[in-house]
Design a protein around this nucleic acid. Structure first.
Lengths: 139, 139
DNA sequence: TTGGGTGCAAACGGTTTGCAAGTAC
DNA sequence: GTACTTGCAAACCGTTTGCACCCAA
């Protein structure tokens, strides 16, 4: 269970993500925040620390949309598997824990022999608000 | 229902995608193929034609994974809504038409007021083969 | 002393933009 | 003539790599 080196920089990155809680942070936001706190860490190093933290399973990486930069989130023990719903129109990101979706995962595994990774999945579509707006003035 | 201009270049791009059938092509592959056929089209123009074809609903754009370039597919009338399963390990891309997933879409709409766009969705995970391999030699 | 870690600068790669020239009607 | 399209070159932007330096064991 070697957790590898725990350098000052890596500890700083991890600490920031832990404090961010639910929020997803980009590498850039992490670099900026650390700098703002008086603990500047080089951008390259931020990326490398994140890579290692992801390898170790301490942090999760999310790719949430076209042209957007990757986001990272601290993976606490009590965090449930959840799915992401992303509105293609307004960009809103919703988190969803849903038994039906868990059922879908089981179905795919049993019937299609495919084991999905819920954390990596983003369901794109339209949120309620944008749906209403679209009805009023399409386009 | 103005379908806009139908320039030579746009017709070439569309024709190639139609001939590609099910296959997803990247902008780069399109540019190369057209050049190989003796109809070179500038890369910029390929991107712009694709944008317009997507706007018109004639072509669909897919983002299939981290660091990978966008793919495009001709959207023929008889094409059913299908989902993409992508193996995170070997990169295999599977197409899936599945009533259960259609049910999921309905569920999300009714219970969570979110209308997903199946074409944009990629379910990441492990395919059967990689799952077997993983059991034999993990990592 | 030695192997990993750091971080600046530069490269990378897909995509977009600026702009001058071309084309259709 | 006017409005749109083309395509080269250059910019963009998130990310990665090269490399010299640093630090801890």
């Amino acid at each position: 269970m070697s957790e590898g080196y725990r350098t000052k920089q890596r500890a700083l990155v991890l600490s920031l993500l832990q404090r961010a809680g639910d929020r997803h942070l980009t590498a850039d936001e992490i670099a900026r925040s650390l700098a703002a706190e008086g603990n500047p860490v080089g951008r390259t190093t931020v990326y490398r620390c994140l890579d290692r933290l992801v390898e170790q399973g301490v942090v999760r990486k999310f790719l949430l949309g076209e042209g957007e930069s990757a986001c990272y989130q601290y993976q606490s023990g009590e965090c449930h598997a959840h799915y992401h719903l992303k509105c293609s129109r307004c960009g809103a990101l919703l988190h969803l824990e849903c038994a039906y979706l868990d059922g879908m995962a089981a179905h795919l595994q049993q019937e299609h022999r495919f084991v999905i990774d819920p954390a990596k999945i983003v369901l794109y579509g339209l949120c309620d608000r944008c749906l209403q707006q679209q009805k009023e003035k399409p386009q």
